[in-house]
Design a binder for these strands. Structure first.
Lengths: 119, 119
DNA sequence: CCAATATTTCCATATTCGTCGAAATATGGA
DNA sequence: TCCATATTTCGACGAATATGGAAATATTGG
């Protein structure tokens, strides 16, 4: 995942209503949920939600498909995985360092992971 | 990590200059880097960078300490780990589902992870 | 104390963001 | 076709963001 894509995904998730909507979709699984159901559950007017879904869609975090009169939104799990990968690689000193424990790291000044590609 | 903290961390990272600055700090390790060095490297005026560091600091993503005339900023790896944990738990259908593969999931309509705590 | 260095605070500005009323569009059913 | 339902598009608004010039603050060395 490129930096610009990670930036888009982070920005998309960094908003209350969007994070809530996205989490509902994640729990709903690949089946997805109709827009109206989410609007009702979150107490957000449908047009406002459309705005937020656009953001999530442009960040490749959700997909849409029409089912009758309803628009069914579903989470794109692959993108979240890519984002996690990006954050682990680029923003956590490498998975090996961060994944297991609260990040033990060397005390010397040599960068611990030259291997991490910096774009 | 609470939802509000995750939101703050996501918002803090969802900006070009801040993401760059944070990544520099991650690579620098616990030793950290002086503000001026980062300002020069990124080509951002020092006062603008102060603004961004404030955001990162309020999101608990970095710490500061004074060393002579310089302010040394350092990444807080623990917070990034918490964020990754939050995203995995709440936004990826549970680590067990997402970590290994591009998220294979059941086709039935039963929510796959009732266990995931929703705050 | 004074000058130089490093960073922050204050302030103004342009841009982007989140929100929602109102109208428009799409679909299914009688 | 006409109506009800579901969602989007349009337009406007206040709030929050990102930016940087200018001045203020803190620290070191002479």
């Amino acid at each position: 995942m490129e930096k610009i894509d990670a930036l888009a995904a982070l920005a998309a998730l960094a908003q209350d209503n969007r994070l809530d909507a996205y989490r509902m979709l994640v729990q709903a699984g690949p089946t997805g949920l109709p827009a109206g159901e989410i609007a009702t559950a979150l107490g957000v007017p449908p047009n406002t939600l459309t705005f937020h879904f656009d953001r999530l869609r442009h960040a490749a975090l959700v997909t849409v498909r029409r089912d009758g009169r309803s628009m069914i939104y579903a989470a794109r799990f692959d993108t979240m995985n890519d984002l996690l990968g990006y954050l682990t690689e680029n923003c956590c000193g490498g998975a090996a360092v961060c994944a297991p424990e609260p990040c033990a790291k060397p005390a010397d000044k040599t960068p611990l992971n030259r291997k991490a590609k910096v774009r």
